[in-house]
Design a protein around this nucleic acid. Structure first.
Lengths: 221, 221
DNA sequence: GAAGATTAAGGTTGGATTAACGTTTGGGTG
DNA sequence: CACCCAAACGTTAATCCAACCTTAATCTTC
């Protein structure tokens, strides 16, 4: 899940980035409003976390211009306790949710996941495919009623393919969704991660959860 | 692959033209903004590479007018590092991608190819012809409600003929689209691929999806 | 130092390409 | 008009190479 974080304070920015990455998000973190808008317009993020007080360009302006460019990216606003008017304005401009600083990290994660779920039109955080059950809210995977431990990256990949279920995802697309920035990651990383997931989530006598379409990419059918 | 390059500096223009032609693009290179707009409107380019700093007409104006004329041509912007505002404006106006000077030529080529791919993939995703249904978004082909697996090359060829439906495509044209850059592909490759597609997508008692116009090429009528 | 992420290397598979040969087409000729 | 021939096209089989899978080693991070 690709996430853009636009936040003034470097302390908070770094802390959030780290925490969110542990939760399986691929985070691009920007400190400047104008630059943030640039990134938001240039790429297709799953969700945007937006502080309202920004140098370069005000958070509300950023949001307005994003919506003006007809972008539907889900946006969660971070605001101070006394910025009631701004918060209202933000929701009017098409923000999808907001949190008041100081932030409860777990609540932030929960709300972000809800937004992502909404984006992919999944009603429930739990998906069951054959003998495999995935809970995207708790980052848990069950296989034949036994929990299997996936690493953050493994889980992120599984979750992404699940969100795009039925569609074949090329390695390029997967890479862009699992890693920050664009196009820098090379090699066979994706292959290896897929291999590991398969090994962990394998049920004897059954087709693999993740199938490969040679020359195109991977799918969960 | 028809490409329009609108770039002020003659040095860069010539260099890019040569390089891109070596990569298999058919390049029209223009140095003036107003003239560039004329060309962009006059022909149906696969992709437009647009410098922002131009004599005659500003690159952003050019882009605005192009979109104003309802042209969907994919546009890649070239800008200097400090032109953040212009870049944002460009993306808002409907540019599809941008690169910051100085340009990494390989990255330029990679991104241009991605844009062209997007162009041919993002038409209407589902086409039905007789008993055959093609979903270009999912890389799937259905024949009599049974999915048939096409290889990447087979799919690319089918997709190309579909995009040009009704028009007879010569082997040369097809080759140029399927084998960008490498140029000298000889032999009967196209014939073989067509044969394979036909075999896979054949419906008893019905004319083949792909028809051959002897001496001219292939069509999907 | 332990878990996870990434790179590297080897083995395997299947698509791409070539080449050879069979088939059709269309026009020229008696 | 029937025939023939050459070029264009169709099909199949064999070879080659790129994509893929897996394991192991190396690099990061906490």
């Amino acid at each position: 899940m690709k996430l853009l974080l636009v936040e003034d304070s470097q302390r908070l920015r770094n802390a959030l980035k780290k925490g969110l990455e542990k939760e399986g998000f691929a985070v691009d973190a920007i400190g400047d409003g104008a630059e943030g808008l640039e990134w938001a317009l240039a790429y297709d993020y799953d969700v945007l976390v937006l502080d309202l007080m920004l140098p370069g360009m005000n958070g509300l302006d950023l949001l307005a211009r994003l919506r003006n460019a007809a972008r539907q990216t889900h946006v969660l606003i971070l605001s101070a306790k006394d910025q009631v008017q701004d918060r209202i304005r933000g929701l009017e401009l098409g923000a999808d949710d907001y949190l008041i600083k100081p932030i409860d990290f777990n609540e932030l994660v929960a709300r972000l996941k809800a937004l992502v779920r909404r984006r992919y039109a999944a009603k429930s955080p739990i998906t069951t495919i054959g003998a495999v059950k995935v809970n995207t809210a708790l980052n848990q995977v069950w296989c034949n009623d036994r929990e299997v431990a996936l690493s953050p990256k493994e889980f992120a990949l599984l979750q992404f393919l699940l969100a795009k279920r039925g569609r074949v995802m090329s390695r390029d697309l997967i890479r862009d969704h699992l890693y920050e920035g664009y196009g820098d990651v090379t090699g066979n990383v994706i292959d290896v991660v897929v291999c590991k997931i398969r090994k962990k989530v394998r049920v004897a006598g059954q087709a693999d959860l993740i199938q490969t379409k040679r020359g195109f990419g991977y799918v969960i059918p």
